[in-house]
């Protein structure tokens, strides 16, 4: 099942499918390790639900909803 990273729930896990790369800002997120096939886990949300904290490539990083919306994740058992 494909979902946006921003729609994922706490402690949910998946692998990265694709990420929008329109500008330098997006490219940098890609270079931080948000590449196709990497495993990603949602580890927390700030009190107002944004930003979210994720674990990827064995490190933790937080990103805003405006960015996590552009990242597609493959979750759950593959059909």
């Amino acid at each position: 099942m494909k979902v946006k990273l921003s729609d994922m729930k706490l402690r949910e896990t998946g692998t990265i499918q694709s990420i929008k790369t329109e500008n330098l800002h997006d490219m940098r997120i890609l270079e931080m390790g948000f590449v196709q096939g990497e495993k990603i886990t949602v580890t927390g949300f700030a009190p107002l639900g944004d930003p979210m904290e994720v674990r990827i490539l064995d490190y933790s990083i937080s990103l805003r909803k405006s960015d996590s919306e552009n990242i597609l994740i493959q979750t759950g058992k593959q059909a």
């Binding site: 500008n23 330098l24 940098r28 933790s60 990083i61 937080s62 990103l63 960015d67």
Partner: peptide, 8 residues
Amino acid sequence: PTPFLLEM
């Protein structure tokens, strides 16, 4: 274009 990416 520096994104808000906060390493924890």
